[in-house]
Amino acid sequence: MLIRKPADIPSSEITPPEVWRARRTFIQGAALGVGAAALAPLGAVAAAYPRPGEDEPLTPREFVTGYNNFYEFGTDKGDPAAHAHRLRTRPWSVVVDGECARPGEIGIEDILSGFDQQERIYRLRCVEAWSMVIPWLGFPLGELLARFEPTSRARYVAFETLFDPEQMPGQRRRVLDWPYREGLRIDEAMHPLTLLATGLYGETLPNQNGAPLRLVVPWKYGFKSIKSIVRIRFTAEQPPATWNRMQPDEYGFYANVNPAVDHPRWSQKSHRMIGGGWLAKRRETLPFNGYAEEVAGLYAGMDLRRFY
């Protein structure tokens, strides 16, 4: 008698990961009945970018939204989730000016309706040697920048976070030189991997994650991915960046993820994946956080030990 054994391969191994991940996100989003409009373009999820592997599952949502460095709401990782409800994300607009032909201001509604919101599952590597895998919703920063027609003098892009101690109680103490500022070289800013995120896990971006609009540069340490942006400026000179200004020997302007260049106080060779529990092993950190194939060319000929 032939007894057929069911295959002991979980369906997750048969279905390509991008499909089941997208499906899972879709189901979660649908179950909550929100963000349906934002999920519409999910069918076109096959945009060319490297996805984290099978052994890097999505970080559970409660960790993505409960373990944050967002000093505007306090320096403890739990502070943002506890205090970010004070932030008012409507009305919201972003001033874009500097070296461009059409400086102006763009409202968050126009940003949400004017650009195709797509899902991107990226690794996030914090300079503190931990990582997450996050399904962002957003669109390439370059699409927004192009609308303002940067001139040939625009060699850098500067970003600024909201400054309002009423809404951001962490700003009452001068832990950092407020407002938080960051910058990218123009080619980094225009790179298709560089995202302006407006949501995660198929929903509107939670305040503690940088609502309503934040940068996501997956090959750089997390502090480059500035949150709650109110101003974008094209500049001819390298703009100031908050952490870089405060401790230039510890935080470079480029801040590309690089296991070969340690933070002066700790190693960057490995990191811990959030959500792995207390017996999970550390993982090896990859150059450019695993996006070397896409972005290493931006830094051809540069000494990355000097320009860390």
Partner: peptide, 17 residues
């Protein structure tokens, strides 16, 4: 907290410990 499982030790339990 640790043996009870769940999230009592937070997102980064090793750091917490």
């Amino acid at each position: 907290q640790g043996l009870g499982g769940g999230l009592a030790l937070g997102a980064n339990p090793v750091e917490t410990l």
